[in-house]
Amino acid sequence: MTADEPGPAGPAPPPPGGPRASWRGWRRRRRDPLAAVLIGVLTLVLGFAIAVQVRSTDTDAALAGLRQDDLVRILDDVTAREDRLRQQIAEQRAALEQLGTEGSTSPAALEEAADRAQALGILTGRVAAEGPGLQITVRDPADRISAAILLYAVQELRGAGAETMQVDGVRIGVDSAVTGDPGALSVDGQPVDAPYDVLVIGSPRDMETAMNIPNGVVDKVTRRSGSVDVVQSDRVVVDALRVLEAPQYAEPEDED
């Protein structure tokens, strides 16, 4: 992400796991075509998760102006997101290992792989999703809401456990960028207009609490003559989709 306030650090590479089947070994084995497709999908998404970096500009200057408690909270949020990403990567490595073993083309294994691919599709923004969450409206009548504030809202929601979200019809991903001047903001290069409509799936209570912490999103918006409406819902639909780009440099690790 890119904005004038701090963003999360890029995800660290996953810790070493247990014994893994050789990638070349998998390719040499003759597998059910559906299993091969699922292995490919999981591998592509795994490589994407490892390779992607969350973009941010002017981070050092922004951090220098924050209070100690704000810095501690930001660090906690980044650590929590990193831990979740590490866990997701570990789970996908385990799924790949299972698919690489003899007998992994059983209906149960294929169903498990399909479920994991679907879950990753939601997390990466390639699949529409629905579930409990929040419908948030950020109003900016004075055109004073900066890209940094909108980015800060996304970060706070993620730190509170948001699983997927969209802003004005633009699906948010791990590499999303918020840019532009107040009154003329863009998300991933697509213009967005106030009032900004944010649809987010996750724990409604936890995320609403995060929006209303002292010096949080609601406070920041209010101090700039704006307002934030937060509505909890049992069914939020996030249907904007992202195109998953293949990693330019990263590729599955080859262990012989």
Rank of each mutant, 00 (worst) to 15 (best):
R31I: 05
V192Y: 04
R144Y: 08
A113E: 06
G125R: 01
P6W: 08
V200R: 03
N215M: 13
K220I: 13
V52Q: 01
V178K: 01
A160F: 04
A3C: 07
A90D: 14
N215H: 13
G100S: 15
D256I: 05
D69S: 14
D32P: 05
A90I: 08
P14F: 03
T179R: 11
W23A: 15
L185A: 02
D256Q: 11
N212E: 14
L96F: 09
G17S: 09
A95P: 11
R81D: 05
S227Y: 00
V236T: 06
G10C: 02
P141R: 05
A160S: 08
L134V: 03
A3K: 08
D115I: 03
I39W: 13
R144W: 04
G25L: 05
G10T: 11
P33K: 03
E245Q: 14
L63A: 09
A64Y: 00
D168A: 13
D32Y: 11
D188V: 03
P182F: 01
D229H: 02
G202F: 01
L46A: 12
A162N: 07
G133R: 03
G103V: 03
A160W: 02
R55I: 07
G10H: 10
E245D: 12
L241M: 06
A95W: 00
V154R: 03
A162I: 01
P191I: 01
D83A: 15
I39H: 15
D4V: 00
G133L: 04
R29P: 03
L199N: 01
R86Y: 02
T43I: 07
G159S: 06
E91D: 13
V200Y: 07
A90H: 11
R93E: 13
L150H: 00
A108V: 12
A147R: 07
A117C: 04
A177K: 03
S106I: 02
I145R: 05
